Simulated assay, not measured.
Amino acid sequence: MAQFDDWCISVEAPVGNNRLRVITGQTSNLGVGIQATAAVVPTHYASAEQIARALARLGKQAAAAQIESLLPTTKQIRSGDLAEIYAAEWIDAHSGGYRAPIKRLRWKDHRNMAMRGDDVIGIFQDPQTHRLQFLKTEAKSRVRLSAQVLTEARAGLDKDGGLPSAHALHFISARLLELGNQPLADSIDDALLKHGVPPQSVRHLLFTFSGNAPDALLTASLQAYSGPITQWGIGLRVEGHAEFIGAVYDRVIANANNS
Rank of each mutant, 00 (worst) to 15 (best):
Y249R: 00
G227Q: 07
L169Y: 03
K140M: 06
N29Y: 13
W107K: 12
A88Y: 06
E138G: 10
G59K: 00
R175P: 06
K140Q: 04
S10W: 07
A64L: 03
R21S: 11
I121Q: 02
N18K: 06
D158S: 08
A155L: 13
D215G: 01
K60A: 14
E243D: 09
M1Y: 02
K140N: 01
L222M: 07
R116W: 11
K75S: 13
R175C: 06
F209S: 05
L145R: 08
Q35N: 14
F171W: 13
S69L: 10
N18V: 03
E12H: 12
S28I: 15
V40M: 11
R53Y: 10
A220K: 09
H167L: 13
F209I: 03
S165Y: 07
Q182D: 13
S10H: 06
A213M: 10
E152W: 07
A216K: 15
S10A: 13
T27I: 15
D189T: 05
A62M: 08
A93W: 01
A83N: 01
A2I: 15
D190C: 05
N18T: 02
V22Q: 07
A13S: 14
H204G: 02
R78V: 00
A224Y: 01
R116K: 14
T230R: 15
A100F: 02
S165K: 05
S187G: 01
Q223C: 10
H94I: 02
W90E: 03
I234A: 09
P164I: 10
A147C: 06
L145W: 02
G25E: 01
Q128I: 11
Q133D: 09
G31H: 04
E138L: 09
I85W: 06
L20C: 08
L192D: 00
A46S: 14
A185S: 10
P164D: 09
A63F: 10
D215W: 01
L82V: 08
S210L: 13
S141I: 08
N17E: 09
I245E: 05
V197P: 02
S146G: 12
G235S: 04
C8F: 09
A39D: 12
V149L: 14
A168E: 07
K60L: 15
L55Q: 14
F207M: 14
A216T: 15
I245R: 01
P127L: 10
Q182Y: 11
G31D: 11
H195C: 00
R203K: 08
Q50P: 03
Q182S: 13
A100T: 09
L169P: 00
I188Y: 04
F171G: 00
